[in-house]
Amino acid sequence: MKLRIRFRKQEELRFIGHLDVMRYFQKVMRRAQVAIRYSEGFSPHQIMSFASPLSVGLISNGEYVDIDVSSADSSEAMRDRLNAAGVPQLQVLSVRRLDDSAKNAMASVAAADYVIWLKKEALPASREEEKALFEELLAFCKRPSVLTVKKTKKGEKEVDLKPMIWNAQAGELKLLRPAYAEAADAAYGLSVRLASGSAANVKPEQLLGAFLEARGGAESSVSFQIEREELYAVKEETGSLIPLEAFGSDF
C-alpha cells in the first residue's frame, strides 16, 4: 500500500540537508513502528521516495515523501504516530493513500509555490520601504523577460526565467502563508509559483539572485527567508496542476 506523507521543515532544521531528512525519516519509521516495506537483497532499505530536495536555508510547509507499507491503520492515527516519534520542526501534516498505479513523488513534480520575505535583521526602517521592495520584486517577475546568467560545467549561459515563473503576487505576508504558519517579523512578502522538476526547474534563490543583481543594491539573498508552500504535479486527465497531496485520499 502506497502512502504519501506531507510534512513541514521549519526552524533550525532549515540547516539540515536532504540526505539528513531521509535519514531522519528512516529512523522515525522505526520509532513509530510503521509497517514500512523493505527492498530485497542483502542490505535491505526502506521503500521511500522524496519529492524535490529543498535547499539548505529554506523552510517549508509542503514537503513530501512516499512510502510503501504492508499495513496501516488510518490517516489520522498514522499522522499522530509519526508526530509522536518525531520533532515538531518536521511535523507531519497529512498521510494519504495513493493508488497503486500512482507515480512516485519524485517523478511527478512540475511546480512549486514559494513565499519570500525579509528576515528580522534585514527589515528596513519603515513598513513602506518593506512594501516597496516587494512591489519592486513583483514588477521584476512581471517583466517580459527575466534574464539571468547560469553557471554550467561548460561555462556561463544566459537563460530567461520568465517562462518558468507562473504566478506572482505581492502583499501582506500573513495572507500569503497558511494560517498555521508561525508568525514572522516581516509584514510583506511575495508569493510565486515556479516550474520545478525534471522538465523545467528554477529555484527561488535563482530568481532572487537575478532580482538583486538587476537592482544593484547591497542586499544579499541571505536577507530573505524563503518558504516552500506546496508542490504540484500535472493531473493527466485534465492537464491541470494539482497539489501532490490531492493525488491521495484519506483512509
Binding site: E12, F15, K27, V56, G57, G86, V87, E121, V222
Partner: peptide, 26 residues
C-alpha cells in the same frame, strides 16, 4: 524562530551548519 547563536549568513557559508544548531531528537 528559535534563537540561534550564529546568524543565517554565517550558517549558510560554513560546512555542515547542523553541527551548531542543536534541536536533535532526545
Amino acid at each position: 524562530m528559535k534563537k540561534l547563536a550564529l546568524s543565517d549568513e554565517i550558517l549558510l557559508k560554513i560546512d555542515k551548519p547542523a553541527r551548531y544548531t542543536g534541536g536533535e531528537i532526545n
